[in-house]
Design a protein around this nucleic acid. Structure first.
Length: 603
RNA sequence: GGGGGUGUAGCUCAGUUGGUUAGAGCGCUGGCCUGUCACGCCAGAGGCCGCGAGUUCGAGUCUCGUCACUCCCGCCA
């Protein structure tokens, strides 16, 4: 395989490469070089043959003609073989330059070659990256990862994480590791369990997040903690949620108010996005939107602010009006509201009817509307409520000829979801929503408790460790359902990026809060004994947040699916098709753990 | 656990009201080709039409069941 030609220069070269496949330029012309890489593409013209050789750094065109001592060997080379070539760098003439390639000014005349690793026929082509079924991509992930788009996504992910880490350290944060094997926690998601060999019948759990550890780190007298933390939850997947595991930029600080957390985190995220947004606009100063306001204006607690539409309460214009359906509902129940979804530029019957039939497809009775033309409101709703009320609605929402407005009526809780979807649809259909850029906001003042309708009791609405606004006094004197927590989210383009809180650091507040949620002292001690103990020996006021790394990378890569920004993801059934996980284990392994399988019987 | 979508060559897809021998492009194999960079030209291989039952003279096509993948709901403090 090795030829003896041209050895004087070749012998001084590194065993595998003198340059990477992305390195050579005009100024290397005349040099004898050695490259190793994957055969990206072969173009065989019989007499002359081109090989695009690829590595992590780029692609270089290599040429072989019949004068080359290794011509007959090069002819046998196929896609994705790993080979080494030696040759002389030559300038390409004007017509044959390839400006699309950084190395496109030169090419290498192959004088010697060696096969490092041949490849079987590919189950998944790399070149051209045609669409391929996901199970094949996952089974041959090492090939999939060679493809340019995915390779670039993973590199961008690495750069984003590296930038995050640098920014956190520059802000005076310290990176601490927390355990992977820990205790099962009673709240929240299902735990992944790991049997203990030394303690038969007992189990570790993988952390759903380092939540309790990061608080304990603050109680232990450290400050300004962060970690790119792996988190494990045994819950079903979504497109934007991998099954099993994901990463958070986990942050916690001592002696801070909510405002201090915002001041620390906002510039990190904003500047990170500016760095990787390729010139797209990023919110300079994140607006703060109370949870309640967000629900009323946008129908959810993670609004996409690229959509300019804000809903409004227009109940008064329908109460006692001639539009009997709404008027009757309002009269019967004081909780009933009518919300308006303004649709600037949507003022045509065709559009309004389209929205109405979409609503019916969604299982709604319909979607009432008024559209404005010739200085007046049109449509059945306008007819029924009369010109005066129609004008009042137009005035409130600042609507003019050519615009429309849609109405939903009922108890807000029951139509929130639908109203939010309608808002999104109106914005998209009318082209009112921006499609570029990153619009951030803080959602603040989440309720501390919520009513659990199934079990007819008060429950924690978010995080049992959060500090209620008003402290112990609020817990003792207020209706629990009116108490807000120092609990906040960061939302970007409709994606919930992170969730955080000022924590409760007083044991008596913790006891009272759990009491309200119906847990007695014994439960508290059993489940959160370590935390409760730590609170009793001098706990500092503290708080933090945990932005989701995978979702940040998805946004910055413009990918709708988390598997496109994860090196070795599992499929939606939580299987790793490359490594074959989960898998059976041997009887000996089970015996050692004192575990006997009791599998479900089917068929 | 539930709902929607998809399933035809290795891949992407076409396949008429049910009707003869199921097609195309890409990929693969072989041949030709001295300037390509999505190279080109010729030929070839490659099909349990996801699987199973049913209706029918006849099923890729219709019905039922089932499996796989995917998206969503539940779930994710």
């Amino acid at each position: 395989m090795n030829s003896t030609v041209d050895t004087s220069a070749s012998e001084q070269l590194h065993a595998f490469r003198s340059h990477t496949c992305g390195a050579l330029r005009d100024n290397n012309v005349g040099e004898t070089v050695r490259l190793s890489g994957w055969v990206h593409r072969v173009r065989d013209h019989g007499g002359v043959l081109f090989i695009d050789l690829r590595d992590h750094y780029g692609v270089t065109q290599c040429v072989c003609d019949p004068d080359s001592p290794v011509f007959s060997e090069i002819e046998k080379v196929r896609s994705e073989w790993v080979i080494r070539i030696d040759g002389v760098v030559k300038a390409r003439d004007e017509e044959s330059r390839n400006d699309a390639l950084p190395t496109g000014a030169v090419e290498i005349y192959i004088r010697d070659m060696e096969v490092h690793g041949a490849a079987n026929e590919l189950p998944l082509p790399v070149f051209g990256e045609p669409e391929y079924p996901e199970d094949i991509r996952l089974k041959y992930r090492f090939l999939d990862l060679r493809r340019e788009t995915l390779h670039n996504n993973i590199m961008k992910r690495a750069e984003i994480i590296s930038s995050m880490r640098r920014r956190m350290i520059e802000e005076g944060f310290f990176e601490f590791q927390t355990p992977i094997l820990t205790a099962s926690s009673p709240e929240g998601a299902r735990d992944f369990l790991v049997p203990s060999r030394m303690h038969p019948g007992q189990f570790y759990a993988l952390p759903q997040a380092p939540q309790q550890f990061k608080q304990l780190i603050m109680m232990a007298g450290f400050d300004r903690y962060f970690q790119i933390a792996p988190c494990f939850r045994d819950e079903d997947a979504r497109a934007d949620r991998s099954p099993g595991e994901f990463y958070q930029l986990d942050i916690e600080m001592s002696f801070v108010t909510q405002e201090d957390v915002f001041q620390a985190v906002e510039p990190v995220l904003r500047d990170l996005f500016v760095e990787f947004a390729d010139g797209q606009a990023v919110t300079e100063s994140f607006p703060r939107i109370p949870y309640k306001t967000s629900m009323e204006k946008y129908g959810n607690d993670k609004p996409d602010l690229r959509n300019p539409i804000e809903m409004e309460n227009v109940t008064e214009h329908f109460a006692g009006s001639g539009f009997k359906i709404f008027a009757g509902m309002i009269e019967k129940d004081e909780e009933v509201r009518v919300w308006a979804i303004p649709a600037p530029t949507g003022g045509s019957r065709a559009f309004c009817d389209r929205m109405n039939s979409w609503a019916q497809d969604q299982g709604q009775p319909g979607l009432g509307y008024i559209f404005f033309k010739d200085g007046a409101g049109s449509g059945p709703v306008a007819k029924n409520i009369g010109a005066e009320r129609t004008q009042a609605i137009a005035d409130q929402l600042n609507l003019k000829d050519g615009d429309a407005v849609f109405f939903v009526c009922g108890k807000p809780k029951s139509f929130l979801d639908f109203a939010g979807q309608a808002r999104v649809r109106v914005g998209d259909e009318l082209g009112l929503s921006e499609t570029e850029g990153f619009k951030f906001c803080w959602i603040v003042d989440f309720p501390m408790f919520e009513w659990n309708e199934d079990e007819k009791r008060v429950d924690f609405s978010h995080n049992p460790f959060s500090m209620p606004q008003g402290g112990l006094e609020a817990l003792e004197t207020q209706d629990p359902l009116t108490i807000n927590a120092y609990q906040y989210d960061i939302v970007c383009n409709g994606v919930e990026l992170s969730s955080g809180a000022i924590r409760n650091h007083k044991p008596e507040i913790m006891e009272k809060a759990f009491d309200i949620a119906g847990y007695d002292r014994q439960v508290l001690e059993d489940k959160f004994g370590g935390m409760l103990r730590a609170l009793q020996y001098g706990a500092p006021p503290h708080g933090g947040i945990a932005p989701g790394v995978d979702r940040i990378v998805m946004l910055l890569c413009g990918e709708p699916n988390i598997r496109e920004v994860t090196m070795f993801p599992m499929n939606q059934q939580a299987q790793d098709l490359l490594m074959s996980a989960p898998s059976d284990v041997s009887a000996a392994q089970l015996r050692e753990l004192h575990i006997r399988l009791n599998l479900p019987k089917d068929e």
